[in-house]
């Protein structure tokens, strides 16, 4: 009897410690793997600027390729599908379909750095208790910036599936800028990814990220002398804008949580300068000779201003 008690105690401690021993970085790594490699669906509420959108969400992972599908429950009725980095949006009422792609994969729910330990000097990852979200026990992880160049976040992680159940982004005044919340989450019958599969998935992710063309940027006439610590150059491409058909060079830098785009285009008849804000997204525009430079991203104002003012011509 005593042996049985000790055995049960050891078993329970082993299972209990499995989660409790995780630090913030490890939680982020696990949730990153889970949300990319599992099949699940549910209902997600997106809240921003006092507006609420409720959508049905489905995520599948087949043959190393992620697919996300969002179906709105309210007008305008639309279905947004992401197949890796290709995105299509079907507006059901007008039957209009929009297709586009982005150089890198972006989740509709949340994106997290694969190696959060790299951001040790920029963020504090705090394990902050447990709460219930969508009737599921969730571990709260606070992602707190150590400078004023990025936003704080909180992440609620399902302790069973390790999927993100809720995300909140906070402004510098502490007010919530954005929320993403699962009100219902269902796991589909799929085998849990093995370590080998996770490694393969990481490799797949990396291959998508290898669109980064830092070398091309180094050879461009532009120079970015300074940017916030922890940010990296992700890609540099030449884009043709959808409506204006203008040719714009686009450099994206990111720290894994936040991204900043720097756009370079020929100055028009009327140049644009100064700050602009839309929710968590800020932009700062300036003119260098005949070049219009705009830094834009979901970072505080001082960050886009810092980045834009760091641009110079070689």
């Amino acid at each position: 009897m005593r042996f049985l008690f000790v055995f049960l105690l050891l078993i329970s401690r082993a299972f209990a410690n499995d989660d409790q021993a995780l630090d913030g970085q490890q939680w982020l790594q696990k949730v990153n793997h889970a949300m990319k490699n599992m099949n699940y669906h549910g209902t997600v509420v997106f809240m921003k600027h006092g507006q609420i959108d409720t959508m049905k969400y489905r995520h599948t992972f087949e043959n190393g390729v992620e697919t996300e599908r969002l179906s709105s429950l309210n007008s305008p009725l639309r279905e947004v599908t992401r197949h890796s980095n290709e995105i299509s949006c079907l507006y059901k009422e007008s039957q209009q379909k929009v297709e586009t792609h982005h150089p890198i994969d972006r989740s509709f729910i949340v994106n997290l750095p694969l190696k959060p330990e790299r951001l040790h000097d920029q963020y504090l990852f705090a394990v902050a208790g447990q709460e219930m979200i969508a009737m599921r026990p969730a571990q709260v992880i606070a992602i707190l910036p150590k400078d004023d160049l990025r936003y704080a976040r909180k992440l609620w992680i399902d302790t069973t599936s390790l999927l993100p159940l809720k995300v909140e982004v906070y402004g510098q005044d502490g007010k919530t800028l954005e929320q993403v919340l699962f009100t219902e989450l269902n796991l589909e019958d799929s085998a849990a990814p093995s370590d080998a599969a996770l490694t393969a998935a990481e490799a797949e992710d990396d291959s998508h990220q290898h669109v980064s063309q830092a070398e091309a940027f180094e050879k461009s006439p532009f120079e970015l002398k300074k940017w916030p610590a922890g940010f990296e150059k992700i890609f540099f491409i030449r884009n043709t804008m959808q409506q204006s058909k203008k040719t714009v060079d686009h450099l994206l830098i990111s720290d894994g949580f936040s991204s900043v785009s720097i756009y370079f285009e020929a100055k028009g008849e009327k140049s644009i300068e100064g700050l602009r804000t839309l929710g968590p997204v800020n932009s700062y525009s300036r003119v260098i000779d005949d070049l219009q430079v705009t830094a834009l991203g979901e970072v505080p104002l001082q960050t886009v201003e810092l980045v834009a003012k760091s641009v110079s011509l070689r």
Binding site: V110, N111, L252, D255, S259, G297
Partner: peptide, 16 residues
Amino acid sequence: NAGVKSYARLASYQSR
């Protein structure tokens, strides 16, 4: 088409 309101989260990327 529904304005510039976001129905989803912040943009970010997978950092290696």
